[in-house]
Simulated scan of single mutants.
Amino acid sequence: MDTYKITTDDTLRETLPHGTARYPFAYYPENIWQFDFHRIDWHWHHEFEFLIAAESKICCLAGTDKIDLPKGCGIFINSGVLHRYEAYESACAPNIVFSASLLADETSLLYEKYIAPVISSSVPYQIFDPQMPWQDDILRLLQEIFALQESKAPRSELRTVRLLLHIWDILSGHLQPAARQTALSRPDHRQARLQTMMQYIHDHYEEEITLDMIAASASLSKSGALHIFQSGIHISPVAYLIRYRLSRAAGLLYTTQKAVSVIASETGFTSAGYFCRKFREYYHMSPGEYRQKKSST
């Protein structure tokens, strides 16, 4: 079975373009189980995303929340929200990702009244449960959109946009009260600080880094940094640093012929032995076995 991996930049923004400038919409009939380690790892994008757990339960981490999404339920991920999906078994999860500009121009009244309030509301996500009538309506409309993409029907772009506008009419109507409420509250800067610390790790992972240094990059105490990492992505800053170093090392294993000891040194590990132990803990195989597996696929 082929495996897939999401690609991001140093801020964890997904680098894959979703559609084109002329039609900024993309449909992905994905199975999360087929991704590396059965997860679509942390990423964000400016576009909106809608996903349905079509085959089995999916674990979704969005903003600072962890959600078990039962089979048949769906989720909306707002623009700019850091998120991740994990599968417990084969998990078909058809999803669409599209730009707000597909619905309305940013200078238009439609954008001002119905789209901008949702983006600026700080609502990170919305779950769709088929037991709730208005949410079931959205799930049925999403299924129509998925079917359109798979059938490649004539005028599918026009029909897709019509269905998206119908979804947005329902969604924005139910999210507007929450949007007005959150607009009056103090802004939450946790995600920005989390991304600042992640960026620091990405820039300095080859060097010796301490928790104090990670926290200082976002003007936080050590306890503040620990809290933001745990509430945001559910691991400690040091654990994230090790995982990031391992991911960089994994890339070097199958894109270069460098010795394992050299890769360990270049990715910030103090010794090849420690690197190999951590690599096996995370990837459940040795660096050499990982290199051989990736080379064969």
Rank of each mutant, 00 (worst) to 15 (best):
Y88R: 05
G173V: 05
I201W: 02
I119W: 05
W168N: 11
S223F: 06
A54I: 06
L103D: 11
S172I: 10
W42F: 12
S236C: 00
G19M: 11
T297G: 07
A53M: 06
Q195R: 13
S231L: 13
Q191C: 14
A179F: 08
P177G: 03
A87P: 11
E55S: 11
G273Q: 15
D137E: 15
S156G: 01
M197R: 05
C92H: 11
Y125G: 02
S108C: 00
I58D: 01
Y111C: 00
R193N: 15
T160Y: 05
E49W: 03
Y88I: 03
S120Q: 15
A249P: 00
S217Q: 01
Y23I: 10
R39T: 03
L165W: 15
P187L: 04
G273A: 15
N31H: 14
P94R: 02
A216S: 08
E86V: 09
A259F: 06
L226M: 02
A259M: 07
S122Q: 08
R186N: 09
S265A: 14
F98E: 08
K57D: 15
R186Q: 14
Q199L: 15
Y23A: 08
Q135N: 01
S221H: 11
K258W: 07
T3W: 00
Q131N: 10
Y254M: 03
F48C: 06
A272H: 10
Q34L: 15
L184I: 10
D136H: 06
H234S: 11
R180K: 04
T11F: 10
T8W: 02
R22S: 12
K293V: 09
T270A: 04
D203G: 04
R13S: 09
A250L: 04
Y125Q: 02
P130W: 06
S90N: 12
S236V: 00
R277C: 07
Q292P: 00
D212Y: 11
G74Q: 01
I263K: 00
Y240A: 01
I127L: 08
W168T: 09
Q135H: 01
S120W: 05
L158F: 13
S172A: 15
P133G: 00
I235C: 11
L194K: 08
S90E: 15
Y254W: 14
Q181T: 11
F275R: 03
E281W: 01
A183Y: 03
Q34M: 13
L61D: 12
W168Q: 09
